[in-house]
């Protein structure tokens, strides 16, 4: 059982700027993405590594330990630290179920080092997989689809 201690008062030592007291509550809508392929560019440009085209690979990467992110409508990426009902940042049952789904999330936003971190406290709405781009790109990457067994 993860020992998640909500100890906002015990702040990490940070040398840079004054610390905000706690995360900022936000509601944001966007797609749950595979952050490895999105940031690295090794599997294609940003449009190809989202949506249905990248769904299978997104499942693989999450299961392999890649933290999921939320790609908001304005293009901002939020690194998801955990999602309600699942403490993991990758590979949990909730993360796998929501891979490539567009969701409306309610949670707490944290800023660090130019990155956005999001603790999703509630998935307000699961809009399902809404970006249907597999006809444009095929499966990205093509080897994401396992070959039939011999």
């Amino acid at each position: 059982m993860r020992k998640q201690l909500l100890m906002a008062a015990m702040l990490l030592p940070l040398p840079i700027a004054a610390l905000a007291a706690e995360g900022e509550r936000i509601q944001v809508r966007g797609e749950i993405i595979d952050t490895w392929c999105y940031y690295s560019g090794v599997m294609g440009g940003p449009d190809a590594v989202t949506g249905t085209a990248h769904h299978t690979c997104a499942l693989w990467c999450s299961a392999g330990g890649i933290p999921v992110g939320l790609l908001a409508e304005d293009g901002q990426v939020y690194m998801v630290l955990k999602i309600a009902g699942d403490d993991a940042s990758a590979g949990g049952d909730t993360q796998l179920r929501l891979a490539s789904h567009e969701i409306t999330a309610d949670g707490l936003l944290y800023h660090r080092d130019g990155l956005n971190y999001l603790v999703v406290e509630e998935v307000v709405t699961d809009h399902g997989i809404t970006k249907l781009n597999h006809e444009d790109y095929g499966a990205v990457p093509p080897f994401a689809i396992p070959k039939p067994g011999k």
């Binding site: 700027a17 560019g41 936003l109 130019g114």
Partner: peptide, 23 residues
């Protein structure tokens, strides 16, 4: 992968810092 594509640009490092809720 052998082929790389334009990845989203890295965000500029900002001074905005929020303490994480865990020790």
């Amino acid at each position: 992968g052998t082929e790389t594509h334009a990845a989203p640009p890295a965000l500029a490092l900002s001074d905005q810092v929020t303490a994480l809720p865990w020790k």
